[in-house]
């Protein structure tokens, strides 16, 4: 490890983060050896994947079965106008490699289901959740808990966003929302809209939390949730606790395997948070 292990190009490319006392050559090596899975090459996944690749995270996996649509472009910065109609994993991989050819991009061009989630997630060190729908959000939460993987979660709709880091044993998405809301109750991005820079901000925050987890520096956003109201320009934090009654990570769990829910999307407001 050390100077001899880096090419001159790498030293130049990563110099501004190697200079950081908390990173250094050892931290840069950890990033280059790290494998991060980004769920969704969309609004959250785009900035997260771009910054992780630019930082030199050695392997970035992208899960997305979809194709680029014109209506994605105001927020999904992995894709460009000429990419409309292409597979998102292809467009994403090309963009990431243009930012940093040091990175290996793994394309998972399939919907995440109860059948493939464990095998797709298990090789990775950290998972970044940029899912735009509840079935995937729950699937990723459950699979990460069952596999013992840290999950860097983000969620946006209209002008509101939430972000947190779930580390197994310190609470999970189901501690907050034990089961998905019924389909149709929460509007989707397509129905309700979203300001493009909002997932940009939250995806960047997810990239930062991921880098912190890989390097083991700072205070990760664990056991607390950051809430951002873009219209009010207001950031708040609420404490999160593991719920002993959680059906997944509680004392008497009832969920021991993955569940496929019916397709729908949006951001739920938990009763416990709505009061704050």
């Amino acid at each position: 490890m050390g100077m001899s292990a880096f090419s001159d190009e790498q030293i130049q490319r990563y110099s501004r983060q190697i200079i950081l006392k908390e990173v250094g050559g050892k931290g840069q090596r950890k990033l280059l050896n790290a494998q991060v899975l980004v769920i969704g090459a969309g609004g959250l996944g785009s900035p997260a994947a771009v910054y992780l690749a630019a930082a030199g995270v050695g392997t970035v996996g992208i899960v997305d079965f979809d194709r680029v649509d014109m209506s994605n472009l105001h927020r999904q910065i992995l894709h460009h106008t000429e990419d409309v109609g292409r597979l998102k994993v292809e467009s994403a991989a090309e963009t990431l490699l243009r930012y940093n050819p040091d990175v290996t991009v793994v394309r998972h061009q399939e919907p995440l289901t109860s059948h493939n989630a464990m095998s797709i997630i298990s090789p990775y060190d950290v998972v970044v959740n940029g899912a735009d729908n509840f079935p995937t959000r729950y699937l990723v939460n459950d699979a990460c808990y069952l596999l013992g993987k840290p999950l860097v979660d983000g969620c946006i709709l209209m002008f509101d966003a939430q972000a947190t880091v779930f580390v197994p044993g310190k609470g999970c998405y189901r501690c907050l929302y034990p089961a998905p809301p019924p389909p149709g109750l929460v509007p989707s991005c397509a129905e309700a809209g979203v300001l493009g820079a909002l997932p940009g901000l939250i995806g960047c925050l997810q990239a930062i939390e991921t880098v912190k987890l890989i390097l083991g520096i700072g205070e990760p956003l664990v056991s607390r949730m950051l809430l951002y109201d873009a219209l009010a320009a207001d950031f708040r934090q609420v404490k999160l606790r593991r719920d002993p009654a959680c059906p997944l990570c509680g004392d008497s769990p009832t969920i021991r395997e993955l569940i496929d829910y019916e397709e729908f999307c949006g951001v739920p407001i938990p009763a416990a948070l709505a009061e704050h």
Partner: peptide, 14 residues
């Protein structure tokens, strides 16, 4: 600069 520092730092890390 900053490569004088970066390369010195990498050498010292070893």
């Amino acid at each position: 600069c900053p490569y004088t520092f970066v390369k010195s730092k990498l050498a010292l890390e070893e």
